[in-house]
């Protein structure tokens, strides 16, 4: 039991348990090469090429025109709205995701599994439904609608509705990223911190949070990317009021419908740029999270 206290011993133990050398492969080289080539071709055609087309079309009327597109006040308003929506939805979901992950991994209670499944709900339903939910709740004929009308509160077809719909569809990302990580890390360190005199907040900020920081970042990045790019749910609750309730994705559709193709792709290229940055950040934080997860699991194997 005491033999596996360092990773070298662990590795050698694994080797003993599984004698098949892990470097040699049984497939011939040409199969490997073909598979790799197919993967690159797939990526190239379905991801790289459309992305390049977006930028190409966006610049098709010249760099000056590209810049002019972003000076249009309605376009600027749509960018502002997208940023504002993300700025509200992402922190909300971060706080919620942290709280949910913490409660679900630190307490055992009935219905825990059901709650974990429910958190995933926004990922299963069509985004359109995500928007319709709010119409059914807050629309003129909705559950709380009449009360809102009487008190002159506008939720759907205005900013609050857009934020709600966006929050709904991006709900699970932070929680899903944190739950397996916190589950694997266990709460021994948190208990140790308690015995050393740290109160709840100190445990959270000094122990819990730093341990999950890469997983948290990963979740936030995904949440943000989706929040900025969401179309379906927002389209249902937006009302499409020009210069007021059109986010970037909606605005791109409008530009496209007005035959302003170069402008539409110019704005789309901004979203694509965001996607690329997100991809880069995501890859980096993902590898760090995986590393933390591995370390936590190794520690668990060690303790068994």
């Amino acid at each position: 039991m005491g033999a596996f206290t360092n990773s070298r011993a662990l590795a050698s133990a694994r080797h003993i348990a599984d004698p098949q050398p892990t470097n040699a492969r049984t497939e011939p080289v040409w199969i490997r090469a073909t598979l790799i080539a197919i993967t690159f071709a797939f990526l190239g055609v379905f991801i790289l090429w459309p992305l390049l087309t977006v930028f190409h079309e966006g610049f098709s009327k010249g760099f000056g025109f590209y810049v002019e597109t972003f000076k249009d006040p309605i376009t600027i308003k749509s960018i502002e709205l997208t940023l504002l929506t993300a700025a509200i939805a992402v922190p909300l979901n971060t706080v919620f995701g942290l709280a949910a992950a913490w409660a679900l991994t630190r307490f055992k209670f009935r219905g825990r599994q059901l709650l974990i499944a429910l958190i995933d709900l926004p990922l299963w339903v069509s985004p359109v439904i995500g928007g319709l939910i709010y119409i059914l709740l807050f629309g003129r004929h909705g559950t709380i609608g009449p009360w809102l009308m009487d008190h002159n509160i506008q939720i759907v077809f205005a900013l609050p509705g857009i934020v709600l719909a966006t929050t709904f569809v991006t709900f699970p990302f932070v929680a899903r990223s944190l739950i397996p990580l916190m589950e694997a890390q266990g709460h021994a360190e948190e208990e140790a911190a308690l015995t050393l005199g740290a109160n709840g907040w100190q445990v959270f900020f000094r122990i819990t949070l730093p341990k999950v920081k890469w997983g948290l970042l990963y979740g936030i990045i995904l949440c943000n990317a989706r929040a900025m790019g969401e179309f379906g749910a927002v389209s249902v609750v937006s009302g499409h009021i020009r210069g007021k309730t059109n986010t970037m994705p909606l605005h791109i559709e409008i530009l496209y419908n007005e035959y302003q193709f170069a402008a539409a792709f110019a704005v789309a290229s901004l979203l694509s740029l965001l996607a690329l940055i997100t991809l880069f950040l995501k890859t980096y934080s993902e590898s760090r999270t995986a590393q933390q997860l591995r370390e936590a699991q190794e520690l668990t194997i060690v303790s068994k």
Partner: peptide, 20 residues
């Protein structure tokens, strides 16, 4: 009293050192 109020030093079987 909660653990953090008791000032009882605790040593865990698997150390529970703060990895970060």
């Amino acid at each position: 009293h909660s653990a953090y109020k008791r000032r009882a030093g605790f040593v865990f079987q698997h150390y529970a050192l703060f990895q970060h």
